[in-house]
């Protein structure tokens, strides 16, 4: 009888599915392969409307460690000088005319269209998500991710990862209700500053914005470690000076 209880105990509490640890390791490799832990980069955000009209934004971004990221808008002229800062779950937007930073949320959008603030100031996936499922389908892993807290913009992610290079090819983003909010596609692999192949184009579409297309193009991703003081509210108006 004791053996039966022991067996049940081991089955229920000790024998955990393998995907937890393996999936987390894969997710960490995905993060490392997508971007260095601390880096600077330039990004072009392009919103394309169903009628072909497009809106473009050029951003300079600095990221440090797991939870610090700051972005500065370089163009268009109407947005120039705006800066966003993320420290963990805290997010701020600095508008030059207003002259002071205001707190914003991950679900808002400082650029309009399909992109929201969480897309522009994305932290590593393993910082915000736990792996809840792992499948192997041909040349790809399929990871099921669940947000660690309610502060994360998307409650669940489904991520298709190329086994060979451990880079995602597609990510579906879901709300807590199960609603598909958007799908991200990773394209155009190319070597960056550190020689690692990374996708340089990230395309997004959303059933909530039918016919709209959003694209992020990455350029000049370079490892760069700057002091923590750069990632502070008081420094937001000065980001341009360290570019």
């Amino acid at each position: 009888m004791n053996h039966l209880f022991l067996g049940l105990f081991l089955l229920l509490f000790v024998a955990r599915p393998a995907y937890g640890a393996d999936g987390t390791a894969i997710l960490k490799r995905v993060d490392a392969n997508l971007q260095p832990e601390s880096f600077e980069s330039y990004r072009k955000l392009i919103n394309i409307e169903p009628n072909g009209a497009k809106r473009e934004f050029l951003l300079y971004t600095l990221k440090k460690g797991h939870d610090k990221i700051v972005s500065l808008f370089l163009s268009p002229a109407s947005e120039k000088g705006r800066a966003t800062l993320r420290l963990g779950d805290n997010m701020w937007l600095y508008i030059p005319d207003v002259g002071r930073a205001i707190r914003i949320t991950s679900l808002q959008s400082v650029v309009g269209g399909v992109f929201n603030n969480a897309d522009i100031m994305r932290l590593d996936y393993n910082v915000e998500y736990d792996v809840r499922g792992l499948e192997e389908k041909g040349n790809e892993y399929v990871l099921e991710l669940k947000a660690k807290t309610g502060a994360v913009a998307y409650d669940r992610l489904k991520m298709w990862v190329d086994k060979k290079i451990v880079i995602p090819t597609k990510i579906e983003c879901y709300a807590a209700t199960g609603l598909l909010i958007k799908t991200l596609y990773f394209k155009e692999m190319k070597p960056f500053d550190d020689g690692i192949l990374r996708p340089s184009v990230n395309e997004t579409d959303s059933p909530l914005y039918k016919g709209y297309q959003s694209i992020i193009v990455y350029a000049r991703i370079k490892k760069r470690v700057v002091p923590d003081e750069v990632f502070t509210l008081e420094f937001l108006s000065k980001v341009e000076t360290i570019r």
């Binding site: 072009k44 392009i46 072909g52 050029l58 297309q213 694209i215 193009v217 350029a219 000049r220």
Partner: peptide, 30 residues
């Protein structure tokens, strides 16, 4: 506007980013 699928011109975008990244000055307004 005329409807057409947007095609990413990586070389053109990188050229534009390079130009913006290296500029030490900015002039603008409204």
């Amino acid at each position: 506007y005329a409807q057409e699928r947007y095609e990413v011109d990586l070389a053109e975008i990188e050229k534009e980013i390079g130009k913006a990244a290296d500029k030490p000055y900015a002039v603008g307004g409204f």
